[in-house]
Design a protein around this nucleic acid. Structure first.
Lengths: 213, 213, 213, 213
DNA sequence: AATGAATGAGGATTCATTCAT
DNA sequence: TATGAATGAATCCTCATTCAT
């Protein structure tokens, strides 16, 4: 057997993974622009530069491709939000303000916005998917923030009974006005200043609710 | 004039309105269960018990039927929320708790939930519709509550700079945990007790943020 | 019986005829713009300002309405062509040139052009109709001209074996270039000068073919 | 290379072309019988023995299929007319008579007749198509004949100012009586003898108009 | 593993015609 | 007689999926 002309397993896997990724990239572009029903498998094939047959070699059906895509995308979306929670050197209010600002900016990104729309819209049809999305995006953000809150409470900087609920309240407050209105495509000031203001008010509100005096 | 053999204008209008309502009812069932793309005009016709031709006699196209439906439904959904804001004889905390409870219960209703899903999902395609929905549901609730807040602030019971923003924060807080998780079809305690608890915390939080002293 | 409140037969007929005409007028506008298949009965009803029910009271079906319309329209279209053939005071060439010019101008009118298109297109489906159209338009023109030719031949101004064939040739020659190309929507000089030139050449050609000497 | 298991490019192209041709054949049958509006894509699919989906794989829409069909058919229809113009060994009158006869016979063929009907009927909707049809059928016939006329004029056999106009007149004269009446589905003698007579008269007329002396 | 031609059910919409009022 | 709401078959076209190559 001539191994020089045949790809090794690693090469195969790499090729396989690469092609898979290529499809997912094409799918992301389309699903996040046009939604689930608004995207056809032909479009995905064309966008990804593969044939429809290949599509179905990698994914059993449209629903599965969609699920795989959401799984992949959900992971990355809020990472830069909850990753910045671990900075321990700043006072509570400042950290929270920065987290709030990151959250608002992230949620306003076209991709995140569409992701939210799609997940909420299709949660009935793909409950597992909504679950995965929650765990990888909102869920991890909430629990990371809850841990941080518990930590600060232990340090006496906050007074909190239920850190998870407090974290949930915090992220809800982040969505006041700008994010919420943008979800309804209403005209709303999305300027830097406006975002900073909402982030500041959110942080201040949280401190009023949970700060030690 | 022989009124027994000729229908009066009212009868005619009634018939017309009745058929229209009949179609809207069928459409509501389907659109609110399966979404916009997931509902076909044939299904609507069958559900409403009319022919496809009749459908198109009353509504120019699918989009218009959908719009008419959302307009009609949006109007009624949150009415019982903002109508109970006007009770002036109770203290702030109690009123707010009742409003919060009504809001949570309303948003958890299958219809409202689907309405939210659909509006958010299709806001891109039907921006006008999202606008109408906002005005008739969230918008009126927010401005009603904002008025109430301003009133209570004038009475010295609250201290509020921006009553509208405060109202928006209040309704965001209402959606913490139960509503939010239900939107993602996550398992969550939707018991009476749980709802009351969130409503109470929301009310208390608001009073902490905006109460006098 | 109170005849003063009931319309007499004549009034009825008049009303009937008027309504009929009203429908035919609306139908003419539409059929001559959009063709047979391109015109719907609803459009006709709206254009004529009557209900669809009334339409079907006066005409059994779309085909019959169409036929009635063509009958009515065909009659008038070429009248001003063959009516000017009877001027006996001019020399042959001049008369023919004027007839040719009238013919070309008439055939170029949007109505006539569409009538030709429609009749030719639908002749298979409505052979009787094509026959009627022929008799009332081309047919009467040909026979009128043939009579005139025979008359002039009798006067020694023309030498013609078969006046009918000669007349047919004359009208075919009229359609050279401008009319023919306009039927194919090709760009062609339709200026007054161009029309006059073709008319002159047609007349001259006819005289060369059939003139005495 | 194992050519027995893999189709060559030619085979693939052949298959593609064959299927395309199969569709065009089915489309020809129907469009040329029932016209553009009178033919449905379902009918074409059934007639061609393919699915509707396949139809739309080969042609973007009904209009494009129709256009492709007309383009293909137009090319061939009058070829045997203008190809016989190049015979230089015969005298003018004989050549013209043969060309006239070929023209009349061709225009009387059911296919050509329907082609004319459809093009004239749909020229408004498909001006490009009418243009293509003209160029490939009447246009090339006219210019070929015009060239021949110019050539004979150079040889002193004809005296012609405007060879193109003369050619156009010639083809108009060919359509006198038989072709013209057949377009209106009128009863008319289409016998061999009748055709020959019209061809002879046409040739003689042309010689009278343009012959030397 | 990759292709892309083929499928056919299903999508929205139109329209000639009928009929109760 | 006049109305116009109701019908449902037919229109063009799309799309997820399969399968021979």
């Amino acid at each position: 057997m001539n191994t020089s002309t045949l790809p090794s397993d690693q090469t195969l896997n790499a090729a396989c993974t690469a092609k898979r990724q290529q499809i997912l990239d094409g799918a992301a572009t389309l699903f996040l622009h046009n939604g689930y029903e608004g995207t056809s498998m032909s479009q995905v094939a064309r966008e990804a530069g593969v044939s429809k047959g290949t599509l179905y070699n990698y994914f059993d059906c449209k629903a599965q491709l969609f699920s795989a895509l959401i799984e992949a995308v959900a992971e990355t979306k809020l990472r830069n939000v909850y990753e910045r929670i671990h900075s321990d050197d700043l006072d509570c209010a400042t950290t929270l303000q920065r987290v709030a600002e990151a959250m608002i900016r992230t949620l306003l990104q076209p991709d995140s916005m569409m992701l939210y729309r799609i997940i909420v819209a299709e949660a009935r049809k793909f409950p597992l998917l909504a679950d995965i999305f929650w765990q990888r995006a909102f869920g991890v953000s909430i629990s990371t923030l809850a841990d941080w809150i518990a930590n600060r409470a232990a340090r006496g900087e906050l007074v909190v009974d239920d850190p998870v609920f407090a974290a949930e309240q915090f992220f809800m407050l982040c969505q006041t006005r700008i994010v919420q209105r943008h979800r309804f495509e209403l005209p709303v000031d999305k300027s830097d200043a406006a975002i900073k203001t909402v982030a500041r008010i959110t942080s201040e509100s949280f401190m009023k609710l949970n700060g030690a005096h």
